[in-house]
Simulated assay, not measured.
Amino acid sequence: MAERAVAWLVARGNPRLPYRGTQANDRWLHHRAAALNLRRLINLGLIYINNTWTLMPTIP
């Protein structure tokens, strides 16, 4: 799964790290990974109802 995450980053126009220094790149990478994870959860049915986040069950 780690290889897939790196492949997604490279395929989406992030072939190199955008900043100088390890702290800035670490922060960027964590935010980028969180954004990709959130987008994936939303595609799977994540919704916000009554002050709680819920994954809607899919009907086969």
Rank of each mutant, 00 (worst) to 15 (best):
D26V: 14
T22L: 05
W8R: 15
Y48Q: 12
G13F: 01
W28P: 03
E3A: 12
T58E: 13
L38H: 02
H31N: 11
I49G: 03
V6C: 04
H31T: 02
I42T: 10
N37D: 09
P57K: 13
A35R: 11
Y48A: 05
N25R: 13
A11M: 14
D26A: 14
A2Q: 13
G21L: 12
D26Y: 08
H30D: 07
A7P: 10
L29C: 13
P60F: 10
R39N: 03
L44P: 00
H31Y: 05
I47H: 00
T22M: 03
R4V: 13
I49E: 08
P60V: 13
H31C: 07
T54Y: 07
P60S: 12
A11L: 13
A33E: 14
Q23R: 11
I47N: 02
T58Q: 13
I47R: 03
T54P: 02
P18C: 11
V10T: 02
A34Y: 09
R40P: 02
I49S: 05
T54F: 04
W53S: 06
T22P: 04
V6K: 15
L44Q: 11
A2F: 15
M1W: 06
W8C: 12
R27Q: 12
L9K: 07
R40M: 13
T54N: 01
A7Q: 11
R12N: 02
T58V: 06
A34S: 07
V10C: 10
G21F: 13
P60D: 14
N25S: 06
L17W: 05
N14M: 06
N37K: 02
G21Y: 14
L55W: 03
L55G: 00
V6T: 04
L17Y: 08
M1L: 04
N14D: 09
R16Y: 06
R27E: 06
R12D: 03
L17S: 02
H30R: 11
A24R: 15
P57D: 03
Y19P: 00
N43H: 08
P18V: 08
L29H: 08
R39C: 06
A34P: 04
P60N: 13
L17A: 07
N50W: 00
H31P: 01
P57G: 01
T52N: 09
E3V: 15
R39F: 09
I42H: 04
T52V: 14
H30M: 11
